[in-house]
Design a protein around this nucleic acid. Sequence first.
DNA 1: GTAGTGTCTCTAGTAACTAGAGGTTCAAGA
DNA 2: TCTTGAACCTCTAGTTACTAGAGACACTAC
Lengths: 138, 138
Amino acid sequence: MYSIGELSKRTKVKVPTIRYYEEMGLLSEPERTEGNQRRYDAAGLERLSFIKHARDLGFSIEAISKLIELQGHPDRSCQAASEIAVSQLSDVRAKIKRLRALEKELVRISKGCDGAGVSQDCYVLASLADHKLCRHEH
Amino acid sequence: MYSIGELSKRTKVKVPTIRYYEEMGLLSEPERTEGNQRRYDAAGLERLSFIKHARDLGFSIEAISKLIELQGHPDRSCQAASEIAVSQLSDVRAKIKRLRALEKELVRISKGCDGAGVSQDCYVLASLADHKLCRHEH
DNA sequence: GTAGTGTCTCTAGTAACTAGAGGTTCAAGA
DNA sequence: TCTTGAACCTCTAGTTACTAGAGACACTAC
């Protein structure tokens, strides 16, 4: 049996976050000691590792909830799980695309100004003030 | 003079968001009609366009505050503005890097499962449960 | 004058935590 | 067995950048 701190160390999930996951229904309520402290078993540890890994991959709490539900029904089709993963992937790709466009624009803006001048002539400020100076859409 | 709705249309910033920016100190308090409604002038419009553009580029409210402060002092060195832009750029690059790693991992996970099987054998779920199945760090 | 739309303030909600207060429990050493 | 200090408990509130809704008032066109 692990205390919440022990679980935290093993999974690298902070203690208040573990309690938060419990409140959100991602973790089921663990046993308690006589003194009301949480004690987790191996299943709890595994479950939390799953959550941590999915969060690291950017899955939302909601998506993780659905995945956990599926885990609980091994006989059910895994189409939903596949869909969640694919949707997460397209999310990530959309974000990358957008960030690339921003990167280009920021490079252009930053290059125009070395920080040596005064704010009146600053290219950074001018670029932000006037969208027409931009080369790309964003 | 523009009403808040007029300003919203021209800048594509939603009305409640404009009020929010005012509350946050990004926009100075505009004149009011006798009936207490906001009326903006050209300077207000320009300022809001600046904010909108910077937000679209991912600058935080805090960063924008600093940039606006600089705009107000045309004689001051623009080093701070340059630093903010550069830091924003490295932020964006870090995010891209991380997202690329996630993309790779998600592609791998998704490929392993076509959604046809049952959840018990689902590669998506197995991958999430066991970090050791991952090829990359994240 | 009245109808309909726009605007006002205020409160509360979102996602996914994080921080802090004030109090209790546990485990190890004396 | 007692004590001490770290770990734990619950609860509330704060974070970022908004968004939604309630209930009331203002403005504009007919």
